[in-house]
Amino acid sequence: MSVSLDVTERIKPPRAVFLPFMMGHHFGVPHHKDLQTEIIKTALSRITKAEKSGDIFHFPKTWSEARKEGKKLKVKRQKFGD
């Protein structure tokens, strides 16, 4: 998992998923279970999908999108409870 593309490119792990997210939030935003699970499943899918070493998959969601989804879920939780 990576939120720092330059670091990952220098370290050269065999497989990586790059997320344009804030440090400390590699698996998304609080209480967004679907996103957290999707990130893990994406990472694990690279075990079979990566064709050569050095594969860096760019996760198709921005930090802004993730935060907006998290805020919507927070409002929903406050309104209806968990």
């Binding site: 400390g24 698996f27 935003v29 609080p30 209480h31 279970k33």
Partner: peptide
């Protein structure tokens, strides 16, 4: 930054 993790550890 641990503010997300303090709310939900699963983010990290």
């Amino acid at each position: 930054p641990t503010f997300g993790a303090e709310e939900d550890l699963n983010v990290i």
